[in-house]
Design a protein around this nucleic acid. Structure first.
Lengths: 231, 231
DNA sequence: TTTACATTCAATAAAATTGTTGAATGTAAA
DNA sequence: TTTACATTCAACAATTTTATTGAATGTAAA
């Protein structure tokens, strides 16, 4: 094989991996898998696809080596292959924010530029948690909370927040978080709470980003885990 | 716009950026642009494409915000938009190595597993340079050497190495480097030199990776540069 | 102005990617 | 075994991506 053919094969192989990342549905799936491992149906429902279509996209990720499956009972759980995949997803998302202006514009429009003020950093949150000044809520679906969440966080899923609202303390600031910067559940929660007399703000980071920073979390143990390899 | 439509647009925008990265030719172009800025024709020649095709791929990168152009005289120089693009390219390349076994196998086959032994790390090189124990050669094309190279490196382009070989010192170890881990010029050089009685080895990193580690380099100043923004 | 030439454009055909449908597979519980 | 059901497969049409060709554009030097 001459040098040219060799280079061509090399870049083609590399493109196989990047091609797996070049589809909107698969990116949304990655953002879900960043939360934990899920069966096909859960992915399909939360990423708004048919089950067959989700299955096919998940297989693309798996064939590219980015995802992995573990069977538990009658479900097959898909998960990111290792930390390096999560890090790449975070890097690509960051690149999107910095190089594609429409992304930040979309987000700003949706958020009506108002709860920008109610954004709280991880450091601030840590400090306030120590002083018990805040009540932290995880507004992701309960399944995701159960797989892993910030230590001290309480599960108040976005969908049930209106009914469960009364269980919240009224003498403390509420801080909400969800999946990450592309997720709107925490923004909606903050808006709802503020409209109902609470003092609420949004954590700037989502759960996977908080965890990536080695901040205190609590993970579900012993179910559909694989032996840990290295990134 | 409802939440679902919003999310769909968001991930579609994000996919626009990743789609720009999902083609073998464009990845090879990125690896070239990591060396510096070049006119279309140079890219076309070194990435083995027609000029029209290279132009179109470069425009894809530009529209995605990953590349940038500066005119100088009759040439239009393409370059990476900023450091974050280089970092993303390095991360994707790394992901390719770790998740796609065929890549490392291809490389090992080409290199016949022999010059693995003659691999030298950046730290070792720095040390040996200080003690003047090595003679460092940059085997990339002269144009790339001129745009920027490791301090103390001498230009011995791969293509002219056979003729220029006699100018090399015979009393010191020779260390060769090129564009990076996907580049074979340094491997070829090391093989050629060892066959001709020199003691030669390959620097593990290429120029862009060396530079990314803030190790000592020398860059061409004042030509087709843009005002520096931030990543 | 004219000329040279680097780059881009437009049109086309070939190839690859995508979503849908309904049927097939395979595992676990009954 | 049989049944239930989560997941995958196969086939198709629609869409998107890609490389090639030759012409068009635009800038700089003559």
């Amino acid at each position: 094989m001459n040098t040219r053919d060799f280079k061509t094969s090399l870049y083609k192989q590399l493109a196989k991996v990047t091609k797996a990342l070049s589809n909107a549905h698969r990116l949304e799936i990655l953002d879900l898998l960043a939360q934990g491992s899920f069966p096909v149906e859960y992915i399909a429902e939360h990423a708004n696809m048919s089950v067959a279509n989700a299955s096919q996209h998940l297989q693309v990720l798996k064939k590219a080596g980015l995802a992995d499956t573990v069977r538990d009972g009658k479900y097959i759980y898909y998960q990111l292959f290792d930390k390096s995949v999560l890090e790449t997803w975070r890097a690509l998302r960051q690149l999107g924010f910095s190089r594609n202006h429409e992304i930040s514009e979309l987000l700003e429009d949706y958020r009506n530029r108002k709860d920008q003020l109610n954004l709280i950093s991880s450091d601030e949150l840590l400090l306030k948690l120590q002083k018990s000044e805040v009540y932290l809520i995880d507004v992701r679906p309960e399944e995701e909370y159960n797989l892993g969440h910030i230590t001290e966080a309480n599960s108040f899923p976005h969908k049930q927040l209106r009914e469960k609202m009364q269980e919240l303390p009224t003498n403390r600031e509420i801080v909400a978080y969800c999946r990450g910067p592309l997720c709107l559940m925490a923004d909606d929660a903050v808006e709802l709470l503020n409209q109902n007399g609470f003092v609420a703000s949004r954590l700037e980071k989502g759960f996977p980003d908080w965890a990536a920073g080695n901040l205190p979390i609590q993970r579900k143990t012993d179910t559909h885990q694989k032996k840990q390899g290295e990134s």
